[in-house]
């Protein structure tokens, strides 16, 4: 589903964030991406969702070479990918329902369908009761779960998460990881960048390790 072929990313300052990365992630996989801070995890995720372009090499998503997607094609590409950000990236002047509904509004679903799907997604993350709440009235973990609901509400084929458990307590982290596993079980390709080695090594999934932009293991 996701393929990297000798991908390098050099930022303008001449810093190599990724060097000659080749890896493949199959459709039904859940894969962890780990490495020290600055290893290039976020950069790798950014390339997949076209927030950035590689300096060299090819990235393919669902068989499609991303370099063939122009700036007009980016929105459509992003709609098939759900993303969970460490800093949530919520709209703080809209309530939980509207935040989760955003991808559906963008994709052009009608109001009834939006209501149905948003409630289903909120139910899944256990926030159905808070749909009218503003994000600032929620705890960090609850905000993170709003972000997850928004990422999955459009039923994407790929789910990316950048430090989804960054500042959550162990119980909540484990809970959120099992949410991702549930999505993976219904066929979503999941890629999670995380520092939390203790947590991810307990779960039985492939772990890709980066160090200084280079692949250390798990690329198979």
């Amino acid at each position: 589903m996701i393929q990297f072929e000798r991908v390098s990313k050099r930022y303008e300052e001449g810093h190599d964030a990724l060097r000659e990365i080749s890896l493949e992630i199959a459709r039904d996989e859940l894969v962890f991406l780990t490495g020290h801070s600055g290893a290039g995890k976020s950069t790798l995720l950014r390339l997949i969702m076209l927030m950035d372009r590689p300096t060299r090499g090819k990235v393919r998503v669902d068989g499609r070479d991303l370099s063939t997607i122009g700036s007009r094609g980016i929105p459509l590409h992003r709609r098939q990918i759900g993303v969970v950000f460490q800093n949530h990236q919520l709209l703080y002047d809209r309530n939980v329902f509207d935040n989760v509904a955003l991808p559906l509004v963008i994709a052009g679903y009608d109001q009834r369908e939006i209501g149905r799907r948003v409630r289903a997604a909120l139910d899944k993350v256990g926030l159905l009761a808070r749909e009218r709440a503003l994000p600032v009235t929620l705890s960090g973990g609850e905000q993170q779960r709003v972000g997850i609901a928004r990422a999955v509400v459009g039923r994407p084929r790929i789910l990316l998460a950048d430090e989804p458990t960054g500042n959550l307590d162990p119980n909540l982290s484990a809970e959120i990881m099992s949410l991702f596993e549930a999505f993976n079980q219904v066929g979503v390709t999941v890629l999670i960048a995380s520092h939390d080695l203790a947590l991810i090594s307990r779960l039985q999934h492939r772990i890709i390790t980066l160090r200084d932009g280079q692949l250390m293991g798990g690329a198979a």
Binding site: R72, P75, L76, H77, R78, Q89, L102, P103, I106, R150
Partner: peptide, 11 residues
């Protein structure tokens, strides 16, 4: 808000 809308696929 614009950044977020673009991130989740807003044209």
């Amino acid at each position: 808000e614009i950044v977020i809308v673009k991130l989740v696929g807003g044209s």
